[in-house]
C-alpha cells in the first residue's frame, strides 16, 4: 500500500466512509484507518492525512481541535509499547491488544469530549458507555485483524497466510 494511495483514499474517501460507519455500526473508522496506516507506513503525507481526518472528526463530534489526533496517538503508543514487550504475538493476543488500543482511544476521546462539554476530567458517564466502547473496540480490532490477514496474504507474506499455497 503506497503512501499516495493512502493519501488519496484517506483524504477523499475516508471523510465519506467514516460518518457512514458511525451511523451504521457506531464505530470510529478514522481511528481504525489511522492505526492500520500507522502500523505499516510512516510518511509525511500519512501524518498529514491522519491529521486532516482527525480535524474532521473533531468538527463532527464537537470536540476540541486536536483531541482525535492525540487519542489516536495514545492508542498507537500503546500498540508500539505492547509490541516491544510481547513481540511474537499470536492472532488472539493481537486481537486483545488491539482491542485495548482502541479502548484507550475511546477513553481518551471521551475525556476530551467531557472536557469540551465542560463536564470535567472524566471518561465514561455510565457503565453502558464503557461497555459499548469495549464492544466498538472489539469490532474495530476484529476488522483490523482481518485487513491485516488479507494484506499479508495478498502481499505474499509467509506469517499470516489465510490459505497456505
Amino acid at each position: 500500500m503506497s503512501e499516495v494511495i493512502i493519501t488519496i483514499f484517506g483524504i477523499f474517501l475516508m471523510p465519506i466512509l467514516s460518518p457512514f460507519f458511525y451511523g451504521f455500526l457506531g464505530i470510529n473508522v478514522t481511528a481504525l484507518f489511522s492505526l492500520l496506516v500507522l502500523r505499516y507506513s510512516h510518511n509525511l503525507w500519512v501524518y498529514i492525512t491522519i491529521f486532516i481526518l482527525s480535524l474532521l472528526n473533531d468538527v463532527t463530534f464537537h470536540l476540541l481541535f486536536g483531541s482525535t489526533f492525540i487519542s489516536i496517538y495514545v492508542s498507537y503508543i500503546f500498540d508500539i509499547i505492547i509490541k516491544r514487550v510481547i513481540p511474537n504475538e499470536t492472532r488472539t493476543l493481537d486481537l486483545i491488544f488491539t482491542t485495548i488500543s482502541f479502548f484507550l482511544f475511546y477513553v481518551s476521546l471521551e475525556i476530551f469530549m467531557n472536557l469540551s462539554s465542560g463536564s470535567g476530567f472524566r471518561a465514561f458517564e455510565n457503565f453502558q458507555e464503557l461497555a459499548s466502547s469495549l464492544l466498538y473496540s472489539f469490532i474495530m480490532s476484529s476488522v483490523l485483524l482481518l485487513i491485516s490477514m488479507f494484506r499479508t496474504y495478498f502481499s505474499g507474506g509467509t506469517g499470516h497466510k489465510i490459505i497456505k499455497l
Binding site: P19, F20, Y22, G23, F24, V59, T60
Partner: peptide
Amino acid sequence: VYTNTSHDQVVNGR
C-alpha cells in the same frame, strides 16, 4: 464544507 456530507452519511448509515 464537511458537516452536511457527514450528516447525510450518518443518515445513510442509519
